[in-house]
Design a binder for these strands. Structure first.
Lengths: 255, 255
DNA sequence: GGTTGACTTTGACGTTACGTCAACTTCTAA
DNA sequence: TTAGAAGTTGACGTAACGTCAAAGTCAACC
């Protein structure tokens, strides 16, 4: 069954403008578009929209929302995690209400409330950002998010030489890993681990992952569309192979 | 005791940019500004900031926040009402969490959730707007907010003739009421009620208030800075006189 | 007194996530 | 066929700051 833009907008209590915006930025692409240009959405898109609105409600920017809903991840497990997030947000409102109650009591008693107590529970944005970061840390490991940020953001500050080095090295590594996959080399073989040492050294230019983080990075590569599509473009199935090779490397050579 | 911009920003977990912005728009004016141009805030401003941040957190636009915090109203009563608002927002998160739980159950059971059930609890903005409107209705009565909106918004669509009629009539009414006050006429006297009939007729051009609403409108005139300053400019103390006269008129001649 | 770094200001452009509107096409019911 | 509802694209506008530059002020230290 499919629904038009207005039908979805009505059900989800958003505007059709919002849905068009989300299509435009690739956040929620309709199931199909008719010859007339009309957008039609199906159950899968509705479920995705629910997650989008939820994460938006939890204060994430749309870029961050995209990161999360795009990640390959068991949908039910993701929803469970969002549910926990909601409960924590609920607790925050309880804290706000407690602060207001305290202010009322103090005013009624003719007292002055301690200035810094007035704003207990109000650090909304930083707390929400912490939740987001905690989510990523739990999902991928320590430092992986920073690595992602750097790969996206810091390149802006790089010199042209740094950029071209990066742009040369990353694909070269992918190609070496692809050759392993092509040759049917098991990820635990010494030969594979040596190639992965090259990747590890490449990553260590920005940050030194531990065992857990390096494995997490491999999962991020496989699970987030941004990296995955790059890797899969080199060779189908490479994302999984790289992920497994990184896990094997972490196991064998990191602590 | 006073605090600098950065001190307040730190305590309230906002940026100094936000505080400057609020000063700029008149929402939170510092207690005093030094010869060097530096802003200093005192306890009164901190309490006001708490309310501002609270209402912002509840989803109001800054214009709406200003309306509420500017209204002359017992501070403790206002905080009590905000507290209730917070608890209702907490409930909304509980509803969101319940919707997510339901989605999880359905997905685990291999079912499809009814499309419109997917977004139960998600109508965030309209619910928040309803809370705001309910607040104003409880405070001033039915229709008073619409009147306020009209006096602010609809004038945009008026012809120049309509505007000048309004701009002539409203001050003329204020002057007539001021003469009553000057002459020491009790608001319950026939003479006063007759003048107020003129104001009532003026209001009825837009909307017909009942007894409660008309009294509420008088309270809005006295309690919201926007109207109050206009009225007090005609004659100090006129806002209270007009409020009392409107209450008397409502009592005597409306149902 | 001079220096330095932290703090503060004003001014102004930029950002995010749409809101609003215009112009046009498509659909559907009467 | 017609009219009104529904849909599209394109594009400017908005709210609430974020960011940055330029310049002034303050306070501690030498």
């Amino acid at each position: 069954m499919s629904w038009s833009t207005a039908q979805v907008a009505r059900m989800a209590k958003v505007t059709s403008r919002t849905l068009r915006h989300y299509d435009r930025i690739g956040l929620l692409v309709p199931a199909w578009t008719g010859n007339n240009g009309y957008r039609y959405y199906e159950q899968e898109q509705l479920l995705r929209l629910q997650r989008i609105l939820l994460l938006r409600e939890l204060g994430l920017g749309l870029n961050q929302v995209a990161e999360i809903v795009d990640a390959r991840h068991d949908q039910v497990a993701a929803l469970r995690q969002h549910h926990k997030w909601l409960l924590r947000e609920q607790e925050r409102y309880a804290r706000l209400a407690a602060t207001v109650s305290e202010t009322i009591s103090q005013l009624e008693g003719g007292n002055e409330m301690a200035a810094d107590r007035l704003f207990e529970g109000f650090d909304v944005d930083s707390e929400r950002q912490k939740e987001y970061e905690a989510y990523l840390r739990a999902r991928f490991g320590e430092g992986v998010q920073e690595h992602l940020d750097e790969s996206k953001g810091r390149m802006r500050d790089w010199s042209d030489q740094q950029k071209s080095e990066f742009l040369a090295e990353w694909p070269a590594i992918l190609r070496r890993v692809a050759e392993l996959a092509e040759a049917g080399v098991a990820v635990t073989e010494e030969r594979a681990l040596d190639v992965l040492a090259g990747h590890y050294a490449f990553v260590c230019k920005a940050w030194t992952p531990n065992k857990h983080s390096y494995r997490g990075l491999g999962e991020m590569y496989a699970d987030t569309e941004e990296f995955r599509s790059q890797i899969e473009a080199v060779r189908p199935g490479l994302a999984e192979y790289l992920r497994d090779a990184m896990a094997a490397y972490a196991e064998a050579r990191l602590s």
